[in-house]
Structures are given as C-alpha cells and as structure tokens.
C-alpha cells in the first residue's frame, strides 16, 4: 500500500520534473550552439532596460515557443487524412510521456521496477517517433511525405543502434529491468562493454533527436519543415512538447542504463545533473560542428560505423555471459 502511494506520488512529481528538465536541456542546446556561433541565444539575465518589459530571464524560451503555438489556430489541409493527421501529435506526446514513467530518476524509481521495463520503455519511445512519421504521411503534402520517408529511413538505422545498444547492456548484466540495470555497476569488463554500448547509444541519440549531421528529416532548406510542414497551432505545439519529453527520456535512459548507479538513489542527484549537463554539452558540440548529411550518407555512416560496433559489443557481451 505504502509502495503504491509512493509510486503515485512520484508519478505526480515526475511530470513537472521531466518537463522542467526537458525544457532546460532544450534551452542549453540552444544557448550553447548560439555561443559557439557568435550569437547571443536565449538571454539568461535580461538587459536592465528590457527586464521590466519582457521579464528578467529567457531561460524558458523553449517553453514559451511551445505555449505560443497553443494560442494559435491549427489548420488542417483538405488533402489530409483528417483523423490520423489530428491524432498523431497527441499519440506521439502520450507515448513519449508514458516512457517517462518507466525511466528512473534519482530518488524516484517510478515504474522502472516492472518486469521487462527496458523493452516497454524502448517500445514507447519508438511508438512516439512512429507517430511523427504517420501524421505527416497522412498530411497530403509532398514535403511531409518526403520528410516522413527520410524519417523512416533514419528511424531504421538509428532505432537499430538504439535497441541493440540497450540490449548489449541487458545481455551483459542479465536483466531487462531498468531499475536493476540502474543500480548494477558490475565488474571492469562489464563496464568496458557498457562504455562501448554507450558510444553507440550516443550515436543513436543523434539520429533520434535529429542532432545536426542527422537532421535531414526536417531540413528546412530542402523540404521546408519536413514532417511538420502542414502542422500548425496546437498540433505543432503538441509535437514540440513530445520532442521535449523525448529529449528528457533519451538523457534519462542514457544515464540510467549506461551510467549506473547515478539514477538509483537521491544521493547521486548532483552527479546525475553533471552527467546530464555533459551529455547535453556533447550533443550541442556535435550539433554545432557538423553540416547535414544527405539521407544516403547518413545510412551509410550508421551501417558502416555504428552497426559493426554494436556487433562487436554483442560478441563481447555474449562472451562475458558464457565465460562468467
């Protein structure tokens, strides 16, 4: 009974925490890329004369951008399949938020102790991205169709690396429960395999989060806004909110699975924050340093570099399991 009450309380608590952290991560990526590019970016301390007019900080700029969309009309193109087009953003948001509940946060294990929670979480994340493909494909716009097509192609390779890297760790440690993975440091060979899987996971994150060399599904110079071309108003806002949760999820899942035991206890919270900041910093650096690949070159990059690494990881994990 106490357990259930605690779980319900922690679920109520994780909603603001995940939203806050997701917005913060988006803010950091924007601010860091701006500083790398000789720009100002969202202002942390507003200039004195402007502060009375627009508030003392713009840390919440990513959230304001989303909230602004909720105040606008949503247009539905006449060529669209209406039901799929309208529901996809909400389902995408639903699944990305549902995944939040299966990934532990320091002090809040949530539902991560459920059997097979690793599989559940990765399925929910995949479902969220699936609906960013289905909605645009139903929009009737050629830009949306091409964006969705690129998203599918990228999805195939990025998702493969994502799931495979998670399973390398799962095989190494012999469990499919995230809370167990989050608390299980293991021996030095295990840590090495986990580190290797962490590298491939980072590469998969680039594709899933559309970090720069892999942002071709929404390449604005080529295909307007790609999947989001026909979306506007609340529907677009919902998609962007889903993206914020996906960003939080990816960082949280990375730390939980690849950096144990940072997610296991509230005492690790400071280190958790540092790890998240380092991860966001790395993502921002990659984002800034690279132009965009074409989709064919992105597929080539994943299949030539990441997939062999994942296979090496699997062999090593299998070896560890059989020998140990």
């Amino acid at each position: 009974m106490v357990d259930h009450v605690f779980t319900i309380l922690s679920i109520a608590l994780i909603i603001p925490i995940s939203l806050f952290l997701g917005v913060m991560y988006s803010f950091l990526i924007r601010k860091l890329s701006a500083r790398f590019q000789w720009r100002v970016g969202p202002i942390v301390r507003m200039y004195g004369d402007l502060a009375p007019v627009i508030g003392s900080t713009r840390i919440w700029q990513p959230l304001y951008d989303i909230l602004k969309l909720f105040g606008k009309d949503a247009l539905i193109p006449s060529t669209a399949h209406k039901r799929l087009f309208t529901w996809s953003p909400y389902l995408s948001l639903f699944f990305s938020f549902a995944a939040v509940l299966f990934i532990p946060f320091p002090g809040l294990p949530l539902l991560s102790g459920t059997p097979y929670s690793l599989i559940i979480a990765s399925y929910l994340l995949i479902a969220s991205i699936l609906f960013t493909i289905l909605g645009p494909a139903a929009s009737g716009s050629p830009w949306g169709a091409i964006g969705a097509r690129r998203e599918v192609e990228l999805f195939l390779v990025a998702e493969l690396s994502f799931v495979a890297s998670l399973f390398v760790v799962a095989v190494t440690k012999g469990t499919l429960v995230i809370s167990e993975l989050a608390g299980f440091v293991g021996s030095i060979p295990m840590m090495l395999v986990t580190a290797l899987a962490g590298i491939t996971m980072f590469a998969a994150m680039l594709g899933k989060l559309h970090i720069k060399p892999f942002d071709m599904p929404e390449a604005e110079c080529e295909i307007v806004a790609g999947p989001y071309t026909e979306y506007s108003g609340k529907l677009l806002g919902t998609y962007f909110l889903a993206k914020v949760f996906v960003l939080y999820n990816m960082v949280a899942l990375f730390i939980a699975v690849f950096l144990p035991p940072l997610s296991s206890s509230v005492l690790w919270l400071p280190l958790y924050v540092v790890a998240a900041l380092v991860l966001i910093f790395l993502l921002a650096v990659v984002h800034v340093l690279n132009p965009r690949y074409t989709i064919a070159k992105a597929l080539m990059w994943y299949t030539k570099i990441i997939v062999p690494l994942v296979i090496v990881g699997f062999i090593a994990a299998f070896f560890l399991r059989v020998v140990a």
Partner: peptide
C-alpha cells in the same frame, strides 16, 4: 551555402 547544407555555424562565422 553553409546554411543550405545545414551548417549554421559556418553561416555565422
């Protein structure tokens, strides 16, 4: 061209 190939950093530099 840097912007067109998606490289905002090259554009700003």
């Amino acid at each position: 061209v840097a912007d067109v190939i998606g490289w905002k950093t090259g554009f700003h530099l």
